[in-house]
Computed example of a mutant assay.
Amino acid sequence: MPYTTTDDGVRLYFEETGSGHPLILVHEFAGDLRSFEPQMRHFGKRYRAIAFNARGFPPSDAPEHVSAYSQARAADDILAVLDHIGEPRAHIVGLSMGGFATLHFGLRHPQRALSLCIGGCGYGAEPDKRETFRAEADVIADVIRTGGMAAFAERYAYGPTRVQYQNKDPRGHADFKAMLAEHSAVGSANTQQGVQKERPSLYTLVEEMKRLLVPTLIITGDEDWPCLLPGILMKQNIPSAALAVIPNSGHAINLEEPEEYNRIVGDFLCQVESGRWPHRDPRAVSASITGMKN
């Protein structure tokens, strides 16, 4: 089984397929590398596609202590995979927890990114939602530790941004829930308290975003309510960013609408590789609504 080892000694399991420019897929909290199977099959036809399990998600190691988990480590774990495969740069594509890791990878290691695709990124980011999100992370960790993953999956899989997937694709949603139930209770609880709860609000990263010049796509579902305003925030402040919204969709957009997701991301990658991805024209940023202000 292919593994890489991080600088703090954690083994990360990964899989790869295809050849070409490397593309690293970074999964969400409720998923693992299997969540990106539609993308591995699609993009593996054109790219060297790599998906890995985050720390805490077996067969990657699941450290016993919360201190081994953080937003910075999540970003640097992407770098460990990139170094291991021997590539200087890669397209980084993440969803939710993986979307946050993708953004932070771009902020921490911009010279190693060909592009960034930040999906479903924003939970708990708004200042008035932050303490509620932090409290819910502790509740989730406690539910997992006391009740186990199967009982947790029965609740979490039917959240307000997950029911869209169930309504569209009951069989796919059932697979998603079963996958979630298989995860490590220790790893999932520690991820909630070390990565999710403690990550900085996007609203504190605005000045860093303004300096981010890596080609960036922000993509979200229009019923992924916690991610809509944070998505606009990133679009407004990352000068190389575009914003794509998939209609009538919740959080798991790559599984809910795989064809549309793959089309949008694929078009983005093609524009980047052809050198046609733009930076925002400064004339598009104005205090005037029409450009006719005195």
Rank of each mutant, 00 (worst) to 15 (best):
D8K: 14
L12W: 03
Y13T: 04
F14W: 03
E15P: 02
G20D: 09
H21K: 08
H21P: 01
H21Y: 02
L23A: 04
E28G: 10
F29Y: 09
A30D: 06
L33T: 10
S35L: 15
S35V: 11
E37Q: 13
P38R: 09
M40R: 03
Y47V: 04
Y47M: 03
R48Q: 04
I50V: 07
A54W: 08
A54T: 02
R55N: 04
D61Y: 04
H65N: 14
V66F: 06
V66L: 09
A68P: 07
Q71K: 05
A72H: 15
R73L: 01
A75R: 10
D76A: 08
D77N: 07
D77E: 03
I78N: 08
L79Y: 00
L79V: 05
L79I: 14
V81C: 01
L82R: 13
D83I: 13
D83Q: 10
E87Y: 02
E87L: 03
R89M: 01
A90G: 07
I92Y: 01
V93R: 01
L95S: 12
M97H: 06
M97R: 14
G98K: 06
G106K: 14
R108L: 15
H109R: 03
H109L: 04
Q111T: 03
S115A: 11
I118D: 00
G119L: 00
Y123N: 14
G124I: 02
E126L: 14
E126K: 05
P127Q: 11
T132Q: 13
R134P: 03
R134T: 12
R134W: 11
I140K: 15
A141W: 13
R145P: 05
A150V: 00
A151Y: 08
A151E: 15
T161R: 15
R162P: 11
V163C: 10
Q164V: 14
Y165M: 06
N167Q: 15
N167L: 11
R171A: 15
G172T: 01
A174I: 13
D175Q: 10
D175W: 15
F176S: 00
K177P: 13
A178C: 07
E182D: 13
E182W: 11
H183D: 06
V186C: 11
S188V: 07
Q192K: 00
Q193F: 07
G194L: 02
R199T: 06
R199D: 05
R199L: 02
S201N: 12
Y203T: 05
Y203C: 07
T204F: 07
T204M: 12
V206T: 13
K210D: 00
R211T: 12
R211A: 14
L212S: 04
P215L: 01
P215Q: 01
T216Q: 06
L217F: 11
L217C: 08
I219V: 09
C227N: 12
C227G: 15
L228Y: 14
G231V: 13
G231W: 01
M234P: 08
I238E: 04
P239R: 10
S240H: 10
S240Q: 12
S240I: 04
A242F: 06
P247E: 07
G250D: 08
I253D: 02
I253C: 06
L255M: 10
E256L: 00
E257N: 14
Y261I: 03
N262Q: 02
V265G: 01
V265Y: 08
D267A: 13
E273Y: 07
S274F: 02
H279G: 02
D281G: 13
P282A: 03
R283P: 05
